[in-house]
Design a protein around this nucleic acid. Structure first.
Lengths: 189, 189
DNA sequence: ACCTGAACACCGTTCAAGT
DNA sequence: ACCTGAACACCGTTCAAGT
């Protein structure tokens, strides 16, 4: 729409939030594979290196994007956890799977950074630990259980590659059953 | 060692096996991240595009490398499976974890191709299904169980990134415990 | 502080040509 | 059939300079 090219020193009016918003758009349009610094700059109508004023590097961008995605997972409230802790755990994991499976090509990055350390990720971790405690699982066992549940859910989401031979419905079913099995084991029958 | 540069038409004496062997070397030296077509060509003292005579593309190379890695997992024999099927399952998964954790940065690729379809991968799948059958799990349930066990094992191996804050020993412990829980659930207490 | 231009050291892959 | 040279369309990141 007639955006004039800028010379050196002319501002584009970017900030960390605008960069994230653009990253979201590139992510849904071109997938995680297509989310490059240069493609992101193109989306913003900006020189590639301009991004480094708002993001320290691509790793920082990944952290931003991943926690943004995890922010879409609904968090069960305390009364719900108290009423049905096991149901709450099942729900968090099922909801997480649904959100994660939207971007299966993003999951490798999540696993490779050991489950994401962002604000949203930690929030999900805390409520799951609370639910486990309410279900009678605490201490080392709870930490183990949380990690197993995360690896399982992220792993199945990663398993659901776009051009995959296996339909997502089937993988969703696998994930649900794995949840049953894990909870049986964790809760000690 | 005085290797003369070749002109067009001069053979380098490559074959699919030599390419794989070089890929193995690059993989241990520079990691999965450093295993590029160009780096592989450099290792072989050959032009980058020369590889396309022995490998259809990089995806094909990944398939080759992944199945090669999986080939290092010891396969339990039939008598062992018959004697202690559950122990055999536990052993295959633990052994797989040990082999896979050697190249944690390779695991994202494995998950993204839905568990590897190579010869070695299928062999491991068949013996695990046999062990499940011997333990009384068959049909759909066995197929589900196999997939859950694979996702869990590959997922934990992916979780063990090199520069990770979490030591491998701890992740190995998590994996062992997750195996217990899963088997408890799968075998119906 | 926020941006551009130019550059560096990379990628995967294709196409034409040589033997 | 197996290889090289050259090229195309990309990467992430840094450095100097402009306002």
């Amino acid at each position: 729409m007639g955006t004039q090219p800028r010379g050196p020193g002319q501002r584009a009016g970017l900030d960390r939030n605008a960069v994230l918003a653009a990253a979201r758009r590139v992510l849904v349009d071109r997938g995680a594979h297509g989310l490059s610094m240069r493609a992101l700059a193109r989306e913003l109508g900006v020189a590639p290196n301009a991004l480094y004023s708002h993001v320290s590097d691509k790793n920082d961008l990944w952290d931003l994007v991943i926690d943004d995605v995890l922010g879409h997972v609904p968090v069960p409230d305390e009364t719900q956890i108290a009423a049905d802790p096991v149901g709450a755990i099942r729900e968090v994991m099922a909801d997480s799977f649904e959100v994660l499976v939207t971007h299966p090509d993003l999951m490798p990055q999540i696993l490779a950074r050991q489950g994401a350390r962002g604000v949203q990720a930690q929030k999900l971790g805390v409520v799951t630990l609370n639910a486990l405690a309410a279900a009678g699982v605490a201490g080392d066992e709870a930490r183990d259980a949380l990690r197993v549940l995360i690896v399982n859910t992220v792993g199945f989401a990663a398993f659901a590659v776009e051009d995959g031979v296996i339909p997502v419905d089937e993988i969703r079913g696998n994930h649900a059953r794995s949840l049953d099995w894990l909870l049986t084991g964790i809760l000690g029958r």
